[in-house]
Amino acid sequence: MRQVSAADWAAELAERQAAGFDFLDMITGVDRLESIEVIASVMRSSDATCELVSTTLDSDRTLASITHVYAGAGWYERELAEMFGVLILGSADQRPLLRRTDEGAPTMLKSTVLGARVLTPWPGDADASDDAKANRRRQRAVGVAEGWLVEEGSTDD
């Protein structure tokens, strides 16, 4: 993994492309709580060799667009903006990718509470033994904050 500063992001990826990595595999973000890490995977399609380039964003969460290097990056940059709240500089297409508007908190941040998780039945809730008598503690889905899945009037100890 190549670690670069956010300022060197576009230059580093241009260098990777010049080194023969002709295909942008993907770009994604990782919420490290105190900062956002952005990772790009580039591939040399002739022998399927992949390399990762990573950068950690400052609190302003801005990153230069690399659509002039890899045209396909626009899709992932829209995803970064929508899901992680990263402000992409110099990108022509700023539309949200999945949601109709960019209202509300970025969905992939750990601080964002996902309301649908309360309304959707968790497949892991059903006990494998299908035994109502089983004296198990009620399990909670990973990533669901305490108290979310408590039904009104029930006790969740």
Partner: peptide, 15 residues
């Protein structure tokens, strides 16, 4: 099923 972050696995069984 319980570890899947996107809840995409469903399992049914009997004893």
């Amino acid at each position: 099923v319980r570890e899947c972050p996107v809840w995409c696995i469903d399992l049914a069984s009997h004893t």
